[in-house]
Design a protein around this nucleic acid. Sequence first.
RNA 1: GCGCCUGUAGCUCAGUCGGAUAGAGCAACUGCCUUCUAAGCAGUGGGCCGGGGGUUCGAAUCCCUCCAGGCGCGCCA
Length: 539
Amino acid sequence: MHQEVRNRIISCLKKFNLDTSINVELETPKNESFGDLSTPLAMELARVLKKPPIKIAEEIKADLEKDIFDSIEIAKPGFINFKFKREFVISKLHELLNKGNEFFAQNIGKGKKIQIEFVSANPTGPLHLGHGRGAAVGQALANILKEAGFDVSTEYYINDAGRQVELLGLSVYIALQKIFGKDTPMPDDCYKGEYINELAKEIYDSYGEQLKEKNFDEVGDFLIDFAYKKILAEIQRDLEDFGVIFDKWVSERKLFHTGEVQRTLIKLKELGFIYEKDGALWFRSTAFGDEKDRVVVKSDGTYTYFASDIAYHKNKIERGFNELINIWGADHHGYIKRVTAAVQALGMNPSQIKILLIQMVNLLRDGIPVQMSKRAGTFVTLRELIDEIGADTTKFIFLTRRHDSHLEFDVEIAKKQSQENPVYYVQYAHARINSIFEKANYEPKNFNGELFNEDELKLIKKVLTYPMIFELAVNLREPHRITFYLQELAGEFHSYYHKFRVITEDKDLTDARLSLCKAVMFVLKHGLKMLGVKAPDKM
RNA sequence: GCGCCUGUAGCUCAGUCGGAUAGAGCAACUGCCUUCUAAGCAGUGGGCCGGGGGUUCGAAUCCCUCCAGGCGCGCCA
């Protein structure tokens, strides 16, 4: 619906000789008496054209093709307000019903290749609710971008090399010693969760005495491998049960084994971005605005995490993505500059990499904040949320916030209030419509749009704004906008449902109303699918 | 100390790259189930948009400053 308006505006904008293709912003006015759609364009152009906004608005209006409009009005500071003809709205409803999902997919992406990397938690412990938030956002983003015609690839980068997995192995080793009766104190930086003891127990049960009396140098690699692979398998299962599927899992180890890390550093050196100082190798990230240069190879000859991270990004770039999206926890924000610097050093335009920070989740239990620590083993796992709250509810809650906004998550309330959770409100609307169709026991082939009353036209228009919301979510990379829209749509439907009966004695009226319900159902189903949430037929 | 994020109704949060009279959910209160699902609907109350400056036709939104909270500032990951 908004596209038709936008096209008409653009086509009569030529006479103003605007060099760049400007963004024609459209919005649904807060006050519905202002019309169905509105644009502040004339006010935005006022400065450039050095003309009063009202005058510009009038000029635009004069040239505008008015076929689909009932009225075009110019309001106070310079808004142009559009009101659609009834026939046009009805015709769009027909279009939606005929096209189904195609109606929403507007091919904004045009096949552009986007890679989204998210979660990427170290395989040193179970996923916690913070990872869950990243997973929900990443998956939803992948869904909407894919639907919008982008060629999307999702990836999980596995930090299976280096210090952290080594510490994991050591933690298991010490726990194993405890089983053998040798009580060695667990160093501070070791992992202390109960899962470490479970891993040790498991190893003991399978390999038992073979490992007795061995020191860490002898069995370390074995323990590391055993532990991280086991944990990674659990992570994969948790994500799967959460409804998050990755196209690709990339191993950091492999980047070392194939020599990609080494080659990356050589290439950067050739480009003049690597130098030696104090026995270490440094990447010149200050060349791209970082506060200081960063070490890639320490003076003891080992690589920093950053070194393999650059190699991973080089690998991404070489695979020909037009855009890279990294979804990180906000605690990694200090990393942004050096990574974008590395990507630029490797020849990518900085606008091609976007790093979305997922703000911290503050965990509460009955209103009391709980400190989470993976090392100390005090955290709420994603598994716990899936089992006790449910994947759909959890995802929906995560997606009712902007990714950049702090999220307060009270586990007890989420469990208790599950009846009052907004996700049910939206799903319920879908289930309700489905039950109407079960009662009616048929789907109308056609309908007479003349039969719709004012409430129905309003609901139809709400349904038809979905593509605009969808487009916005896609362009801004903000899936939460769909969540909010769905709540609004569900609200308008529930209200309509109580005011009018869909199935009546009048066959024509019933057909029209069923058609409207069908359209609402289409949109609810589509939106929920984008969020990765089920649209149940019954509740 | 420096950097990033946040501050909007009692609580949790939206607010369309600066737009019209600032919204929703929860909580509170009042009504509504003989009729397609009451996980619902209708209604009521609730706000110096953290404070103060500035930019302009116009600011919750942009800039400066201050206050408060969170998170980062290693040859850790």
